[in-house]
């Protein structure tokens, strides 16, 4: 059963084998959870939202036209639900959708002295979690979920060029912070 494709599982669920949906939940829960944690910056809230997303996806399975991958369709639900949650909470909405100039607040947000050892991976992980929601979402989908820019643009309902801009800006920003904190020098 575990080797079934997403579409085969969906067909099975539609035929009435509701319990097969757990295969999809198991397949996507951790990756979607990572995306939500990075967007919402709160583990408990992320898990709560993720539950809602899986219920929403289940209820909308009949609307899934199989024109795109299930993962892309599901990430769209996750991304939109996270944005709705963010807007409800009115949590720094302006910052979340800010221009790149505003992203440099992150540079002052990280205290290298707080970290005893210079662990670049840890540092990068920490900095991603501090990225604004939409930038964190792009980075997460591109690197963790290995989605193409086209798939990300579909999930986020934005243009491919916009996705690329967000990805490049995130990289540039992380590089600047890395250099500023002498992480890059050590690796080089």
């Amino acid at each position: 059963m575990k080797n079934l494709s997403d579409l085969e599982i969906i067909d099975s669920v539609k035929r009435g084998n509701h319990s097969d949906y757990s295969l999809l939940v198991n397949r996507y829960k951790n990756k979607a959870f990572s995306l939500l944690v990075r967007m919402l910056k709160n583990q408990m809230e992320a898990e709560e939202v993720l539950q809602d997303c899986f219920v929403k996806a289940y209820n909308s399975l009949n609307n899934f036209k199989q024109q795109s991958k299930f993962s892309t369709w599901f990430y769209r639900i996750v991304y939109n639900t996270a944005l709705t949650r963010l807007s409800i909470k009115k949590r720094q909405v302006e910052n979340e959708m800010a221009s790149i100039d505003d992203l440099y607040f992150l540079e002052s947000d990280y205290n290298p002295e707080a970290t005893e050892q210079k662990d670049t991976s840890k540092f990068v992980q920490t900095m991603i979690e501090k990225l604004p929601a939409n930038y964190a979402a792009v980075v997460n989908m591109f690197y963790l979920d290995e989605m193409s820019c086209e798939e990300i643009s579909e999930a986020m309902q934005t243009s491919v060029s916009n996705v690329k801009v967000m990805l490049h800006r995130s990289r540039n920003l992380l590089r600047d912070i890395l250099v500023k904190n002498n992480y890059a020098e050590e690796i080089l």
Partner: peptide, 15 residues
Amino acid sequence: YLQIVHRELGKIKSS
């Protein structure tokens, strides 16, 4: 520097 970031981002783990 940019390649380092690219490489490190490729190592991010899922929660």
